[in-house]
Every structure is written in C-alpha cells, then in structure tokens.
C-alpha cells in the first residue's frame, strides 16, 4: 500500500512541475496551469500545496538567481523527487487500471 493518496489538485501541481522541468517556480506553475487547463489558481492556494508536497517529500526546492522583474527577489525552483515521480506513476497506473476495468460498452456509450 502507498503511504498516502494524492489529491486531485496535488496531482495536477506535481504534473505541472514535471512539465516545466527546471523552470518550475511559483508564478510559472500558475501561468502554466492557466494556459493548459484554463484554471486560475491563487498564489495562496498554490503555495500551500507546494509547501505540503514539499513536506511530504514529493518535491524539493532551492532558490535561484535574482531577477529585476521580480523586484530583486529570487525564485524558488521546485523539482520532483524520486518519491514524487513514483507516486505520480502509481496514480497513473491506478487510473489506467480503473479505466481498463470498465466494461467496453459503457466506454463506447460514454464516447457517444
């Protein structure tokens, strides 16, 4: 059994961090989600989730260089940890497993 289950929002944040690779910092993640999912997220919600994921050891972070556009403040870049990757993998497999278990006609029915 897994230690814990990912929440929906947590999963999306983890995936977005994975997409952005080395460029995953707070604001970039929000923008990316807005662009791809058309889902607007407040900094507050985002930061809380990032902190939580970091605490659960699915993410690590370190501070980057300062940039002028940010008023001289440094960015905090997030990376997936091995644990983070493996839980994403698990989640995906769980979903796929569930999808595959659905009898065919319903899938067809759903597609109509």
């Amino acid at each position: 059994m897994r230690k814990s289950q990912l929440g929906e929002f947590e999963e999306i944040v983890l995936l977005t961090v994975a997409i952005l690779q080395d460029e995953a910092y707070g604001f970039a993640i929000i923008e990316e989600m807005e662009n791809r999912l058309n889902r607007s997220v407040s900094i507050g919600a985002m930061q809380t989730v990032l902190k939580r994921l970091e605490k659960k050891n699915y993410l690590t972070s370190q501070l980057g260089e300062a940039t002028a556009v940010r008023g001289g403040k440094r960015k905090r870049f997030y990376h997936l940890t091995a644990e983070g990757k493996s839980i994403l993998q698990d989640t995906k497999e769980q979903r796929l497993g569930l999808w595959e278990a659905i009898p065919n006609f319903i899938v067809k029915f759903a597609k109509i």
Binding site: Y25, G26, F27, I30, E31, S42, I43, G44, Q47, L63, T67, V69, R70, G71, K73, R74, K75, R76
Partner: peptide, 28 residues
C-alpha cells in the same frame, strides 16, 4: 522572498495585460 517575487512578477504581468493589478495583488 520567493513568494514576494512571485507576487511582484504577477503584478507586472497584469499591468501589461491592463488588469487591475493593485487590487488583484491585494486579493492575492
């Protein structure tokens, strides 16, 4: 530090997009 950076960055982006940046910053 990093959250403030995000806030500031978001603020300038919103200014460019002609959005009520100050209000949105405050809400954030």
């Amino acid at each position: 530090e990093d959250i403030e950076g995000d806030l500031v960055e978001g603020f300038y982006k919103r200014v460019k997009r002609k959005k009520p940046a100050k209000l949105l910053l405050f809400l954030d």
